[in-house]
Design a protein around this nucleic acid. Structure first.
Length: 596
RNA sequence: GGACCCGUGGUGUAGCGGUUAACACGUCGGCCUGUCAAGCCGAAGAUCGCGGGUUCGAACCCCGUCGGGUCCGCCA
């Protein structure tokens, strides 16, 4: 080893020890006769001194080093003299009196500051990701991520789970997200697909009798990016046999609780985690992944609004649509301009607008609203009562299809939580969402789509409804939401061939298609399949929340840009014609302008 | 596929129709034996992402394009 100790571990009790350290020059303070170097390795930073009087060679060496040089320092740990300690650093009571400094590798001046956490354009950070990863923020995040996966592995191994790897080259499943495809050299014109998740494989492992499986699994989805979505991401993929919904939920709730309490510096808002039905979540929060750290809950005022003289509300209620509202405390004094701007918020969420009623501050609490004239005094009082609004508050009202109302008020809730500072960034608020509808109606294709995935088992009580009212069938599905993000989704699966075939039929897969795509699953179900279920928490999102970061790129060592590009290596890239020939691929030259 | 925001020395920002393109940090040189976001003195470093247009005149206005981000669609 080129070092005997780590920089960050040295303390007063090491005083007098001869040490050899190696690392990066974090900062240089040349004082003339004495030069101070802050030497950094993964463990932390320690001060090196090179004194011209006591160690002329070391001083001469130190004059030659620059920022981010990789050096080896031979010296002695010394307790710092009285009054010269630095309480701001863990190693601040000691320093290394260097006797020799060797440059292992010089460094160019970095393109941005590595010492602090100053904001740098993300394109530059990603281009020099290996430098960005040296910075404290990224280092903490990446180390935290390692602790998260270590904790998960220990937790699950302790409970009888087996870690099993599954293939990355697998088979396309067009019904989910868009697949990343890998051309086959051996089979002209045929393709592997990278797994969107190891869903089928883990179910087959249950058929195979492994009973408790997990994997920290890389998943691939060729869809457009978001702050919480990358083309490749990591799930804790797991599956258990002979379990019911409660068993999986309890295991994960225990895991998540301990993860937050033992691995992070965050604080759980509630435990046990609240459970909301999908219907309730949509009604109260307008979202199936609500942020439960703050209120601003949605209330239904359809009964009152339907009797008003306001045409938009009346027509919606007559059409069976809801009129719902949130009450924003203390925003009743918003200017007309500010209130009009809320229309933009509603539009970007897919709505037409957002009606408002402002309660003037003061005892009377007069209602000020462009639509106020369409309501009787009793109706206004009823709305104010329903919303539990106080003088100075602002009521925001949306009337539309239920899904649009939900989207608009969800957006409004998030916006005002942020404006009013209602979110405590140190808090972690989990909640379970259960009783999802098994299907969503696809109006374009005129068929039912699975709301989760096509292996989710219906609630036993609802199986008779499969024939009569598929839209009312609930799935044995459970999602875990946290701080407004979906961090896990799972279900009890179908383990019966005939039921699985029936679901295929409902989503418009004919027998031939089903056999072609999922024949291996149907066949497997005929060889003794245990009842089973599982879940898949997203490691990136979870780590993002535990780190308090605003997007998952901050917890991924080498993430891709929004255009799914690796800005450091320059992927994707053009390939040699011979490579394409071998793969039997002809590229449409009209599309190739952007490949360079 | 669509909407919006951003792009000015190495980095972060200011400038928003006429400026020698400003400031901080960094870099380089000098001074300095107890600094720790060291300090002091001095210097170098930018055709304002790229292309076109409007204008007597463009970093600034317009169009296009490239790159980064946020959101909708898409996606658990």
């Amino acid at each position: 080893m080129l070092k005997t100790h780590h920089c960050g571990e040295l303390r007063r009790q090491h005083a007098g020890e001869a040490v050899t350290l190696a690392g990066w020059v974090n900062r240089i303070r040349a004082q003339g006769g004495v030069i101070f170097l802050d030497l950094r390795d993964r463990s932390g930073v320690v001060q090196i001194t090179a004194d011209v009087a006591r160690a002329p060679q070391a001083h001469a060496d130190a004059e030659k080093v620059g920022r981010e040089y990789v050096i080896q320092v031979v010296g002695v740990v010394r307790a710092r003299p009285e009054g010269m300690t630095n309480p701001n650093m863990p190693t601040g009571e000691v320093e290394i009196e260097a006797t020799g400094i060797k440059i292992l590798n010089p460094a160019k001046t970095p393109p941005f500051e590595l010492g602090g956490d100053s904001r740098v354009d993300e394109a530059i950070r990603l281009h020099y990701r290996y430098l960005d990863l040296r910075r404290p923020r990224m280092q903490q995040n990446i180390l935290l991520r390692g602790k998260v996966t270590k904790f998960i592995r220990d937790y699950l191994y302790d409970r009888g789970f087996v870690e099993i790897e599954t293939p990355i080259l697998f088979k396309t499943t067009p019904e989910g997200a868009r697949d990343y495809l890998v051309p086959s050299r051996v089979h002209p014109g045929k393709f592997y697909a990278l797994p969107q998740s190891p869903q089928q494989l883990k179910q087959l492992l249950m058929v195979a009798g492994y009973e408790r499986y997990f994997q920290i699994a890389r998943c691939f989805r060729d869809e457009d990016q978001r702050g919480d979505r990358q083309p490749e991401f990591t799930q804790l993929d797991m599956e258990m046999s002979f379990v019911e919904r409660e068993d999986v939920m309890n295991l994960i709730e225990g895991l998540m609780t301990e993860l937050v309490e033992k691995v992070s510096d965050r604080e759980l808002v509630t435990k046990p985690f609240p459970r909301l039905s999908y219907q309730e979540a949509m009604a109260r929060y307008g979202s199936d992944k609500p942020d439960v750290r703050y209120g601003l809950e949605i209330k239904d005022i359809s009964d009152i609004a339907g009797k008003s003289a306001f045409k938009v509300f009346v027509e919606n209620v007559e059409a069976g649509n809801p009129v719902r509202a949130i009450c924003v405390p203390g925003c009743g004094g918003y200017t007309r301009k500010q209130l009009d701007d809320l229309t933009e918020l509603a539009k970007s969420a897919g709505g037409k607008g957002l009606a408002w009623m402002a309660l003037e501050a003061g005892e009377q609490g007069q209602v000020k609203s462009p639509i106020g004239k369409f309501f009787s005094v009793d109706q206004l009082v009823a709305i104010v009562d329903r919303m539990e609004a106080k003088p100075g508050d602002l009521i925001l009202i949306s009337a539309d299809k239920a899904s649009v109302v939900a989207a608009v008020l969800d957006a409004a809730r998030r916006e005002f939580a942020s404006r009013l500072g209602l979110v405590d960034p140190k808090k972690i608020g989990f909640c379970w969402i259960i009783d999802f509808p098994l299907f969503d109606w696809n109006a374009d294709e005129k068929r039912w789509d699975p709301s989760h995935h096509l292996f989710t088992s219906p609630m036993p009580d609802d199986i008779p409804l499969l024939d009569s009212e598929p839209g009312k069938v609930r799935g044995q599905q459970y999602d875990l939401a946290c701080n407004g993000y979906e961090v896990a989704g799972g279900s009890i699966r179908i383990h019966d061939r005939s039921l699985q075939e029936k679901i295929f039929g409902l989503i418009g897969l004919d027998v031939e298609d089903a056999k072609e795509r999922f024949g291996h699953m149907l066949e497997a179900f005929e060889y003794g399949t245990p009842p089973h279920g599982g879940i898949a928490p997203g490691i990136d999102r979870l780590t993002m929340l535990l780190a308090g970061e605003p997007n998952i790129r901050e917890v991924i060592a080498f993430p891709k840009s929004q255009q799914a590009a690796d800005l450091m290596a320059g992927a994707p890239s053009a390939v040699e014609p011979i490579q394409l020939d071998e793969l039997h691929i002809l590229v449409n030259s009209n599309d190739s302008h952007s490949t360079e």
